[in-house]
Each structure stands twice: as C-alpha cells, then as structure tokens.
Nucleic acid binder design. Structure first.
Length: 153
DNA sequence: GCCAACGTTGGC
DNA sequence: GCCAACGTTGGC
C-alpha cells in the first residue's frame, strides 16, 4: 500500500507544532477532531508512516509550519469521554466511540512558515483541498502537492 | 427526507 | 469584528 499525504490544521495557541516539539520524542496525540469527514480520513485511511503537513489556522500567520509522520493509527479520542474537556461528547460511549485520534511525530520544523497567501498564489496548487474546501481540518494532499510545497520552504 | 434556523470555522 | 461557507439540529 502506498503512502498517503495529509494536511492537519491546528490553532497554534491551543495545540501546534511548538507543543509537539516540546513533547518527548516530539510525539503528540492529534485529538479534538469533531467533523465527520475529517474523522473518516483519520479512522479509515491514515496509516503508519503517512506524512503530514502541520498547518496553523486562525492566527496571525496562517500557513504550513512543518511536517510529521504518523506513528499510531486511529484509536478512540479520550477527550470525548471527559466531561471537563472542551471536546466532550455526551453522545459518545466507550462501546461505541464517535471520534478518533492518531499520534504523530514531528519530522521537520520549517525555518519559515509557508503562508496561505503564497500557497494560493501558486497555479499548481489551485486544486488543493486547503484552497477548495477551506473548512476541513484533516485533508488529503497529493504527492505532487507535497513535493511542490517542500520546494517552497 | 426536506429545509430553515442556528452554530462553527477560518480568512481577512 | 465581520462575514462567507458550510455543517448540524430539529420540526414537520
């Protein structure tokens, strides 16, 4: 099975590349995904060693900040069971969890952010899901898009 | 199953 | 803070 490429969005003040880099082995849990389309990608397609762009959204400098690889595939997102969590889902049960997490490990922290504006300005990237469907928090990236963006670093 | 109302995401 | 896009909820 060939490797897949992804883009995961995060609000950096809540959980971003800085948090991952500060964690042991730079590994962290990607949790709090509460959108079915995004969940389905995580649950059904994200595999070990898949590569991920980390994207910072809803902040001053929006854009891609680095890469990570998948080190653990989908398992129930523990925050859905925690009444204290912002991501608590009372309709989710241990027997039938709705939401999943994966673990990722930072592989590269770019020396600069690749701004969304620059990505939008590239004709070769005009079909990226990031551009076409702005509200999806975990999304596939093609190999061509992946390689092209790495050259923009 | 339709659709209006409402809530959230996310760029600017 | 504004607002467009779009996801979710709930009445019928």
């Amino acid at each position: 099975m060939s490797k897949h490429y992804w883009l995961f969005k995060a609000e950096p003040h809540i959980y971003g590349i800085d948090h991952l880099n500060a964690a042991p082995k730079k590994i962290g849990r990607w949790d709090g995904i509460r959108n079915y389309q995004a969940r389905n990608f995580l649950r059904d397609q994200v595999a070990i060693d898949d590569e991920v762009f980390i994207y910072h959204s809803s902040c001053k400098n929006v854009g891609i900040v680095g890469t990570a690889k998948v080190v653990k595939t989908a398992y129930p997102d523990p925050t859905q069971f925690d009444p204290e969590s912002d991501y608590y889902d009372p309709k989710s049960t241990q027997e039938n969890p709705r939401w999943v997490s994966v673990d990722i490990q930072v592989t590269q922290t770019f020396p600069r952010i690749i701004p969304l504006a620059e990505i939008k300005a590239q004709p070769k990237l005009e079909n990226m899901v990031l551009i076409k469907q702005s509200r999806l928090s975990t999304q596939p990236v093609t190999k061509a898009e992946w390689d092209y963006i790495l050259k923009m670093v």
